[in-house]
Design a protein around this nucleic acid. Structure first.
Length: 418
RNA sequence: GUGAGUGUAGCUCAAUGGUCAGAGCAUUGGACUGUGGCUCCAAGGGUUGGGGGUUCGAGUCCCCUCACUCACCCCA
């Protein structure tokens, strides 16, 4: 094989592509019903946009970005996530002058230079939403509900909703201090990774998978006990609204987000159908980011759905999901009949009926075989006899019934409209 | 970046170091001249990932390399 796709990138082919299209159209429908409007932002941005928002010491920025100099030696980065470009756009286009809240959704490829594994790729697709200018927990709950309805519409099952609050710049330092205090006597027993985390980001010790650390963190202080009054009432209101909306969730005080900009509400939706990378959607509030980017103080919240992971789940819970089949297959024998068949197909297609033709003067047998494999509902058969009589034979491939219909009235054939 | 596993036909997989590397599925054709699915028959399809070594003999053993997969890390 001379050429192959680069590591961690992939082609999306039929039949999978139909799942993608369905997921994308469903997202557009449902998010629109919630007042989210589509926004399209560039795939390349100035590198510092991501460094500022995601955080200088995060793995994404330190070792996973596709960063390169352009011809004028500016540092350019292929977007590793969608929030930063949308925030940049929100500020640059003065969208904060429009009535609040402003709600957007986006979809498209993201790029991270990682070792690929199940559910993780170097080019991967996300559908995400961002809402600016509403601090109320009502919006947080609404967004979770929207996600739930989106997943239900795609007939997805057995998803776990996990929520947490990671506080704000007022209360999180206190919690961090308490946490470091708790672990200070045990640092040397923690796994090597957690020794590093203790210095860089002690919150990360909370979701370490090592059995040693799982044991050692028993009885560790919970973030939810350290929230300031404002964060606490925000979280409680959020939870009570989830209850009112009949959303089943799990409070996971160990859930931490990997990007620096999150505040208060965070959430993750996971599925057992995925591998180790089991998060299919995640997000949270980022009430300080717009201001840090040079915009006016603006609360915001958003999430992103991992498309490859979403599609993987759908394939597991619902194999054979919405694969379209031609309504009618036209089998023609002979040159004149083939021309007539082409005309008939064009008439039907003009009425948005999917019509497929046989090619390469294949035998009637092989044309029928192909019609069957494509899953066609009906076959029209045209040969010399039919041309002479002006009547075309039709056959229902699902039940085997047959009949005749005049060539002129084919587009009124009732089987095509069932 | 680290670790483990796997590379044989389009796909899923066989083949004790020993004949010409096989099977199922898929594809194409035939049985059935103009009627699909089921059945039967046949055909096409391979640099055994690549390179080197050991051996009378390597798909099989050794080394190097590449690719893929899974996991760690991290994240959607």
């Amino acid at each position: 094989m001379k050429y192959s796709a680069l590591k961690g990138v992939h082609d999306i082919l039929p039949p999978d592509i139909y799942i993608w299209q369905k997921a994308e159209s469903t997202a557009k429908e449902i998010f629109s019903a919630y007042g989210f409007q589509e926004i399209r932002v560039p795939i390349i941005e100035s590198t510092d946009i991501f460094v500022r928002s995601i955080g200088e010491t995060t793995d994404i920025v330190e070792k996973e970005m596709y960063t390169f100099p352009d011809r004028a030696d500016r540092s350019i980065t292929l977007r590793p996530e969608g929030t930063a470009p949308v925030v940049r756009s929100y500020i640059e286009n003065h969208l904060y002058n429009l009535p609040s809240p402003q709600k957007f959704f986006y979809s498209g490829p993201m790029f991270r230079y990682e070792r690929p594994q199940k559910g993780r790729f170097r080019q991967f697709y996300q559908i995400g939403v961002e809402a600016f200018g509403a601090a109320e927990p009502k919006l947080d709950a609404e967004i979770i509900s929207m996600l739930k309805i989106f997943f239900e519409r795609l007939q997805m099952k057995e998803l776990k909703f996990e929520v947490n609050s990671i506080g704000c710049e007022k209360c999180r330092p206190d919690y961090k201090k308490a946490l470091m205090n708790f672990f200070s006597s045990k640092v040397t027993d923690l796994c090597p990774d957690c020794n590093r985390r203790y210095i860089n980001n002690p919150l990360r010790i909370l979701d370490c998978k090592s059995s040693i650390c799982t044991e050692l963190r028993k009885g560790s202080p919970k973030i939810t006990d350290y929230l300031c009054n404002e964060c606490k009432s925000h979280f409680e209101e959020f939870l009570s609204l989830l209850n009112i909306l009949h959303i089943t969730y799990n409070i996971n005080p160990h859930m931490v987000r990997g990007l620096d900009y999150y505040t208060r509400t965070t959430f993750e939706i996971t599925s057992e159908y995925l591998g180790a990378q089991k998060t299919v959607a995640a997000g949270g509030r980022y009430d300080k980011l717009v201001e840090e980017f040079g915009g006016p103080p603006t609360s915001a919240i958003g999430f992103a759905i991992g498309m490859e992971r979403l599609v993987e789940i759908i394939k597991n819970v619902n194999p054979g999901f919405c694969i379209p089949a031609p309504k009618v297959f036209i089998a023609a024998i002979g040159k004149k009949a083939n021309a007539e068949g082409l005309l008939i197909a064009e008439q039907l297609r003009a009425k948005d009926i999917q019509a497929e033709l046989g090619y390469d003067s294949a035998s009637l047998k092989s044309q029928l075989r192909r019609a069957d494999k494509l899953g066609s509902n009906y076959v029209f058969i045209i040969g010399d006899d039919e041309l002479k009589s002006g009547m075309v034979k039709w056959k229902n491939l699902k039940d085997g019934s047959q009949g005749e219909i005049g060539i002129a009235s084919i587009s009124e054939f009732e089987g095509l409209y069932r």
